[in-house]
Computed example of a mutant assay.
Amino acid sequence: MSILVNTDTKLLVQGITGRDGQFHAGRMKAYGTNIVAGTTPGKGGEDVHGIPVFDSVEEAVRKTGANTSIIFVPAPFAADAILEASYAGIELVIAISEGVPIQDMIKVTSIIEKNGTRLIGPNCPGLITPDEALVGILPGMIFKKGNVGLMSRSGTLTYEVVNMLTKNDMGQSTVVGIGGDPVAGLYYIDLLKMYEADPETEGIVLIGEIGGDAEEQAAEYIAKNISKPVVAFIAGQTAPPGKRMGHAGAIISSGSGTAEEKIKAFAAAGVPVAKEPSEIPILLKEKMAKETV
């Protein structure tokens, strides 16, 4: 089954005629993703890699039945692009754009929730259901179809851990890069619910990082609601307080959001935490074997 994207996904690329939009549309199409349309105002009637371009999302949805959108537009216009997709009836939006103002996202998230639109990102690498659909900037060649669900705030760590899983013959059901911004769309608990309900997902990997309390909330939810094996890794374990480490949300302030607190929360929930990313396949194999006995 997988979660969020599959062979039924009909993808629309917003900003398809720009440099990044063109490049990644070509990569996603080559992977096998069903891209039915692209949009750029004023470029309607053109095509990119054989994909028809429309002036608006509303027109694209009406003529192609697109149900998912990926956004490759500059940060100042990303919020409007998300809203345009939501008002046009798009069910899932993946916002790749980096540097979207927090105030914009605060406004957007409340509106799209009312519209019933789900959002991944912004500032994220997207997601993939191997051999079915790649929606984002992930390197498709490292993924393998399987039964491990993975969610991560870090794009590069996603690639590193997936590569290790694949080399250990542990394929993936769906991998989701949720992004590292402090205000974003679907997060750990939302995805945990989906993985728990997905019959193809038999084990779960959660990659977190310093800053905020999303990992602590996830640990509490896992303890009460998740029956499947879960392992975790927390990035930034040596980061000094007050030092921002890459993501806008990856900062420790007022003594909260530390790696130590997150690791302690997962331990209390019975979730093994890897000291290094290379330990994740080992811990997950052990956890899955133990819980299937």
Rank of each mutant, 00 (worst) to 15 (best):
M164F: 14
Q172H: 02
T166L: 03
T156P: 08
I142Y: 04
M164Y: 13
L165F: 13
V175I: 14
V161D: 05
V162G: 01
V183W: 12
V148S: 01
K167I: 00
L157H: 05
P182I: 06
Y187F: 14
A184V: 14
K145T: 02
T166D: 01
I178P: 11
I189P: 06
M194I: 01
G180C: 12
T156V: 09
N168Y: 00
M141L: 12
G180M: 03
Y195T: 14
V183F: 12
K193P: 04
K145Y: 02
Y195S: 12
L192N: 09
G179T: 10
A184Y: 03
Y159E: 06
G140V: 02
L150F: 09
V183R: 06
E160Y: 10
Y188V: 10
D190P: 01
T156K: 12
G149D: 08
G180I: 09
K193Q: 14
A184H: 09
N168G: 00
T174K: 04
G179F: 00
K193W: 01
F143Y: 15
S173C: 00
Y159Q: 09
Q172W: 01
M141N: 15
L186I: 10
L186Y: 02
M151S: 09
L192Y: 05
G179E: 01
D181S: 12
V162I: 01
Y187K: 14
G177R: 02
G140Q: 12
D181I: 08
R153Q: 14
D169M: 07
G155A: 10
M170K: 02
G140P: 11
T166G: 03
D190S: 07
M141V: 11
K167N: 15
M141H: 15
V148Q: 02
G155P: 08
D169Q: 15
G149Q: 06
M194V: 00
K145Q: 04
M194F: 08
K144M: 07
D190I: 01
V183Y: 10
I142L: 12
G155W: 03
A197R: 14
M164H: 11
V175A: 13
P182Y: 05
M170G: 02
L157Y: 03
I142G: 09
S154Y: 02
T166A: 09
G155C: 07
E196W: 13
N147G: 00
Y187H: 13
I178N: 10
L186G: 00
L157P: 03
M194K: 15
G149N: 06
M151K: 05
L191D: 09
N168R: 07
I142V: 15
Q172N: 13
G149H: 01
V176N: 13
D190K: 09
K144G: 00
K193D: 04
R153Y: 08
L186T: 05
N163Q: 15
I178Y: 05
I189E: 09
L165H: 12
E196P: 14
G179Q: 07
N168D: 14
Y159D: 04
G185W: 04
M170E: 03
Y187N: 08
M151L: 15
K167H: 06
L191Q: 07
I142E: 13
G146S: 07
T174E: 02
F143N: 05
G177T: 07
N147L: 00
E160T: 13
T158F: 00
A197S: 13
G185K: 10
K144R: 14
D190L: 04
L165P: 03
V161H: 05
D169H: 15
E196I: 11
D169F: 11
L186N: 00
